[in-house]
């Protein structure tokens, strides 16, 4: 039987792994906090794509993976709001947003 390209699970999983790869490398490699946050969003996208693909190919009789992808989106929104407010606070206090120089968050 001839399967089309978008009927393969591995293609989706490879794209999700590549997103995770770019996200991890970006978190380690970027220097500013906003760059790290952008890479973190990439990781969340990869996780969501992974869950949706596995739900569609491995257990197609329920919709739990899609629901959890929506939950991941909600968590990402809340996380981005809090992280950006903290980043702006750090910028007001130290007038830079480099991650390497932040040694103490208090005072």
């Amino acid at each position: 039987m001839n399967y089309l390209l978008y009927d393969h699970l591995h293609v989706y999983l490879f794209v999700a792994i590549f997103l995770l790869f770019c996200g991890i490398a970006g978190v380690l490699y970027r220097r500013t906090l906003i760059g790290m946050l952008v890479s973190m969003e990439l990781i969340m996208n990869g996780a969501g794509l992974n869950l949706a693909a596995l739900n569609r190919f491995v257990s197609p009789e329920n919709a739990s993976g899609l629901a959890f992808t929506l939950i991941i989106m909600g968590i990402a929104a809340a996380e981005a709001a809090l992280a950006l407010s903290i980043i702006i606070l750090i910028f007001r206090k130290y007038s830079h947003i480099e991650g390497g120089n932040l040694e103490e968050m208090k005072d």
Partner: peptide
Amino acid sequence: FPKYGAPRFVMGTKDI
């Protein structure tokens, strides 16, 4: 994971 196989997927918005 299995290499091939695309089962029918009918989960819509209502099921979510």
